[in-house]
Design a protein around this nucleic acid. Structure first.
Lengths: 217, 217
DNA sequence: TGCCATTGGACAGACAGTCTAGACACGCTG
DNA sequence: CAGCGTGTCTAGACTGTCTGTCCAATGGCA
């Protein structure tokens, strides 16, 4: 049986191309917001293949969503977060992390809005959302620790509260809400960054005396 | 044909009771998170009626969700917001509005988490979410204007940004995120209120009593 | 030629929504 | 009280759509 093992490799190129066509179709439909009204037949048509072929690549409708979710793992903005949370300068760490979150949400917005939407009923989407939420929580936890150990966490702000706030600031829903309010990605990043700095960081060698000044009481 | 003047009014009590049984069943299933996996038959079974009867009260599966959504219109916390946004004291207006938002989200959390979840694919749910979002936006807009006209909007904060921030602070998603982080409703209200005051309000007689006393730092 | 991805189509099972005939409860009138 | 009219509920049959499975046939590529 091992006699021709190498062949499978070569051959698989064709199969891979088909798989790619399917994924593209799913991405398109997702981006158009019509994936969830589409039948498997329509997905196959869009990909220019037979329904049976689709089922050979993806066991079920949910597997299609699963496939899409896997592609996020290599998103550069997402990968960058792992590093920015531990940048030496806490202020920079905070700002860059926020910035990268916005970058990620923005880059996949069309698709995420659909996936997040159905996470309540679609197991595969729910998996994705839960995993992303857990990942983000882990990163933010690291960021909070970093702020704490470098002594830049504002006095009176517990680590638990700091984490909660960071989660809100960097959540996809907040991104959506602000974008819906008409803010551009740039404004959004700036606004979220400032808010975080204002509420979380102590001292204020930075902008506007944002924090300290406001609460003399 | 007109021989009898019939009183549908009297009769309707029975019909109303049936309708109520159906709604209860839907609420239960929604709260258990299993509505979206349930067939119409199962909903009917849960309500203890025939499937045909259900279809007489609600034309389709979506109408069931619609029915639930209508019940939110009379939620006391939601109604209260209309008044709190214009309380004479801006500080109080802000705090009470935030508080009422939390109260509303909290009172219907089990069901909203499901409805918001499927809003991307369920037209009825989407309608609800869109309507709620529009309503909230309207109220927050009024609140911002109020803060502005009374001169309490912090300098450097445009009305547009103030609105965006308020929308984030009072959004269901933020509520969910903070609750998931382990905050109680009380902590949540306090935290959101403080954040709003810190970021939006100028001056700072900061009502040490009402809410402010909580931050001795 | 032989492998393998692909294809078209048949098929079973599940479910939404429609329809009909009949059972039942209740209000009205005599 | 008796009985008719009316609206509600019920049981079940039926259609159409969609998912997921299976298989025999096709076609490209080494």
């Amino acid at each position: 049986m091992a006699t021709r093992a190498y062949r499978a490799q070569r051959r698989s190129t064709r199969s891979d191309a088909t798989r790619e066509r399917i994924m593209s179709a799913v991405r398109e439909l997702l981006a158009e917001g019509s994936f969830h009204e589409s039948t498997v037949e329509e997905v196959a048509d869009r990909a220019g293949i037979a329904r049976a072929t689709l089922y050979q690549h993806f066991g079920s409708r949910l597997d299609l969503v699963d496939g899409i979710c896997d592609t996020f793992a290599v998103n550069p903005a997402l990968l960058a977060i792992r590093e920015t949370v531990e940048l030496p300068d806490p202020e920079e760490a905070l700002a860059d992390t926020v910035s990268n979150c916005v970058r990620f949400w923005s880059s996949e917005d069309a698709i995420l809005s659909q996936l997040y939407g159905v996470s309540a009923i679609d197991p595969a989407a729910k998996d994705l959302v839960d995993r992303q939420r857990a990942d983000r929580r882990g990163e933010m936890q690291r960021l909070v620790r970093h702020l704490h150990t470098t002594g830049r966490l504002r006095s009176g702000v517990s680590e638990r509260k700091a984490l909660a706030l960071l989660l809100v600031l960097t959540s996809y829903e907040t991104f959506r809400e602000l974008r819906a309010a008409g803010l551009s990605d740039r404004e959004l990043t700036k606004s979220l960054g400032e808010t975080g700095r204002t509420l979380l960081l102590s001292g204020s060698r930075s902008s506007a005396g944002a924090t300290g000044g406001t609460r003399p009481a």
